[in-house]
C-alpha cells in the first residue's frame, strides 16, 4: 500500500467498499433522497384522498377546518420551521468542525420537535373533548359533535356552512387524523434519530470529513417539515375566508 492509498483509506469511518469519504457521503445522501421519494409517494396518496373528498364536500371541509385551532396550527408551523433552521445549523457546525455549537443545535432541534408534538397532543385532546375523533377510534367517545344553531357562537360546537352534514365533517376528521397522525409518527421517529445523533455527537464521532449521519437525518427532518408546510394551509386555513359569509 503506497502513501496516497493509505491517506485516502485513513478515516476510521470509511467503509471498505467505498473509494473515499466523498464517495461514501454522496452514496449516503443519494440513498436518503431515494427513500424520501418513496415517502413522498406515501404521503401523496393521502394528499390525493384529501383533494378528492374536499372537491366532493367543499362546505363540510370548510366547516370542519374552521373548528381547528389556527393559533396552535400557526405556532406549530413556526416551531417546525425554527427546528429546520437549527437542524441546518447543526449540519453547518459539523461541516466546519465545531462540536459545541453542533451539540447545542441538535438539542434545540430535538426540543423544538418535542414542543411540536406537545402542541399536537393538546390539539388532539381538544378534539377529543368536542367528540371529534372519527368513528369509534376512542371507546366510549364516538364521533358526535354538538351542532351549533343559528346565532350560537359556542366554539366547542360544530358550525356547519351551507349544505354541510355531520357525516361529511367526519370524513374530514378521518383525513385530518390520518395525515397529522402519520406526520406526528414521522416526528417521533425523527426525535429518536436526533437522540441517536446527539449521543454520537457528544462522543465526538462527527467531523468535517465524516458527517453523513447528521446530513442524512437532516434531510429527513426537513422533509417532515415540508409535509407540514403543506398540511397547515390545507387543513387549517381552507375555510377561514368563509367564516363571516
Amino acid at each position: 500500500m503506497d502513501a496516497t492509498t493509505q491517506e485516502v483509506h485513513g478515516h476510521r469511518a470509511l467503509q471498505h467498499h467505498f473509494e473515499n469519504m466523498e464517495q461514501q457521503r454522496e452514496a449516503g445522501t443519494l440513498g436518503m433522497w431515494v427513500f424520501l421519494v418513496t415517502e413522498l409517494m406515501f404521503f401523496g396518496g393521502m394528499f390525493l384522498a384529501y383533494t378528492l373528498y374536499r372537491a366532493k364536500f367543499p362546505a363540510a371541509f370548510a366547516s370542519a377546518s374552521n373548528h381547528l385551532d389556527i393559533t396552535l396550527g400557526a405556532l406549530n408551523t413556526a416551531v417546525l420551521i425554527f427546528s429546520s433552521f437549527t437542524m441546518a445549523m447543526a449540519v453547518y457546525f459539523t461541516q466546519v468542525g465545531k462540536q459545541r455549537p453542533q451539540v447545542i443545535c441538535l438539542v434545540l432541534t430535538l426540543l423544538l420537535g418535542l414542543t411540536f408534538l406537545g402542541v399536537k397532543a393538546k390539539e388532539y385532546h381538544d378534539k377529543y373533548e368536542d367528540s371529534l375523533i372519527p368513528g369509534r377510534l376512542i371507546p366510549g367517545r364516538p364521533f358526535g359533535p354538538e351542532v351549533a344553531h343559528e346565532g350560537d357562537h359556542d366554539p366547542h360546537k360544530l358550525h356547519l356552512l351551507g349544505n354541510a352534514t355531520v357525516r361529511q365533517v367526519e370524513m374530514f376528521y378521518w383525513i385530518y387524523f390520518a395525515m397529522t397522525g402519520m406526520h406526528a409518527l414521522h416526528m417521533i421517529i425523527g426525535a429518536g434519530l436526533l437522540t441517536f445523533l446527539l449521543i454520537f455527537s457528544l462522543k465526538g464521532r462527527f467531523d468535517p470529513e465524516y458527517h453523513s449521519p447528521v446530513e442524512v437525518i437532516g434531510l429527513y427532518w426537513h422533509f417532515v417539515d415540508i409535509i407540514w408546510i403543506f398540511l397547515f394551509p390545507l387543513l387549517y386555513l381552507l375555510g377561514r375566508h368563509m367564516e363571516h359569509v
Binding site: 466523498e22 457521503r25 389556527i70 400557526a74 408551523t77 413556526a78 420551521i81 425554527f82 429546520s84 433552521f85 441546518a88 445549523m89 453547518y92 461541516q95 466546519v96 468535517p208 470529513e209 397547515f232 394551509p233 386555513l237 381552507l238 377561514r240 375566508h241 367564516e243
Partner: peptide, 30 residues
C-alpha cells in the same frame, strides 16, 4: 474537500423568508 458549505447568512435568510411566508399565508386565508 469538494463539498459546498452553505454560509450561515443564507440559512438565516431562508429561515426569515419561511416565517414571513407563514405569516402571509395566515393573513391571506382571511
Amino acid at each position: 474537500m469538494s463539498e459546498h458549505i452553505v454560509p450561515v447568512r443564507i440559512y438565516v435568510t431562508i429561515f426569515l423568508v419561511l416565517l414571513v411566508g407563514t405569516a402571509l399565508t395566515v393573513a391571506a386565508a382571511f
